[in-house]
Computed example of a mutant assay.
Amino acid sequence: MPTGDIEAEAAEAARPFRIGVDLGGTKIEVIALDAAGRECLRHRTATPQGDYPATVRTVAAIVAAAEAELGARGSVGIGTPGTLSAATGRMKNANSTCLNGQPLDRDLVAALARPVRMANDANCLAQSEAVDGAGAGCRTVFAVILGTGVGGGICIDRRVIAGPNGIAGEWGHNPLPAPDDAERPGPACYCGRSGCVETFLSGPGLAADHARAAGLAAMGPDAAAIADMAAAGDAAAEASMARYERRLAKALAGVVNILDPEVIVLGGGLSRIGRLYDHVPRLWAPHIFSDTIVTRLKPALHGDSSGVRGAAWLWAPDGLAPSAGA
């Protein structure tokens, strides 16, 4: 998010390093890229839970540590859950709810003592993967974050489409399509609705669904453990994974029917579950309004660090990173 000081922004854009920060629900990651897009460093630290001032301080500290290691000052782009409201200038729609209602851009500018650019984390993922990742060479890319929350971003001709409301691609807070009786009205969501895609397809959503189905009194294994248990032959975990895949297929089919992307790229922690890429495209076919389906489902080439690379590129000329091979 530009600060409005043209001279200061020009100075930031000319710096030798572009620093990206991914402000996630469980981790804050920093990366530094040189002008050619080569990675110079990458570090992670835990996100302070439910503590907004501590979160701002942690972002400032991880950037300062990166610059000390680089021996140089860099421009800073930050990928965030949610987005800034055009009406209030404060954060909205963040699953890290301590951010909502806060002037995050202004507080980070003050903490970092420089202009800062911010974008939704899924938009950062979309740009990173469209430029030189799993969507390289594709005109239309839909990028999905499956992690603490569920987000989406659209990239057309290597440019992110944010939309006038700043919510383009935010499929996670639509209702789960074609719900079964057992899926109605659906779990309560922090947004105030019930049955949102996010409540079923986030990591905590999968874990909660498994706990309910298995009759566990308290929260049981997390999403990664459920996938491992299913691979090892656990029948309850396999049933939970099958429900998850069916729901993911229905939700993504709606995206294909509206956007018709060439590729859907999965990022976030659950994108590492390899079986999704075989099972989901077989399951989405009955829900897609076409006799042939050429849309591909692929994992993010840059893994769960793809979004932080997109954040770094927020300071590239015109906000556009070099094309693959440039």
Rank of each mutant, 00 (worst) to 15 (best):
P2L: 15
T3Y: 07
G4V: 09
D5Y: 02
A8I: 02
E9S: 00
A10V: 02
A10Y: 03
A13W: 05
R18Y: 09
G20Q: 05
G20D: 05
L23M: 13
G24F: 05
K27V: 06
E29W: 03
V30L: 05
V30Y: 06
A32I: 04
R38F: 12
A46G: 12
P48F: 01
Q49R: 15
D51Y: 07
P53C: 02
P53N: 02
A60V: 03
A61K: 10
I62N: 05
A66D: 05
A66S: 08
E69L: 09
S75K: 07
I78S: 04
G79A: 06
G82V: 04
T83M: 12
T88V: 02
N95Y: 13
L99Y: 11
L99K: 09
G101T: 11
D107T: 06
V109P: 01
V109G: 02
A111D: 04
L112P: 05
R114A: 12
R117K: 14
M118Q: 11
A119R: 15
D121W: 07
A126E: 02
G135T: 02
G135E: 00
C138G: 07
C138Q: 15
G152N: 10
I156G: 00
D157F: 00
I161G: 04
G163I: 05
N165R: 14
A168Y: 08
G172K: 04
P175E: 12
D181V: 13
D181Q: 13
A182W: 12
R184T: 13
R184F: 09
P185R: 05
G186V: 03
G186P: 04
A188H: 13
C191L: 10
T199F: 01
F200H: 09
G203S: 08
L206V: 06
A207G: 09
H210T: 03
R212H: 08
A217D: 15
P221D: 12
A225E: 15
A225L: 11
A225W: 06
A225Q: 15
G233R: 01
A239I: 04
S240C: 08
A242K: 12
R246V: 08
L248H: 03
A251I: 00
G254M: 14
G254Y: 09
V255D: 07
V255I: 15
L259T: 10
P261N: 10
L266N: 09
R275I: 15
Y277Q: 03
V280W: 10
V280Q: 01
R282N: 14
P286R: 11
V294C: 13
L297G: 04
G303Y: 05
V308Q: 03
A311V: 08
A312H: 07
A316G: 02
A316S: 15
P317K: 07
P317S: 06
L320N: 11
G325Y: 06
G325C: 06
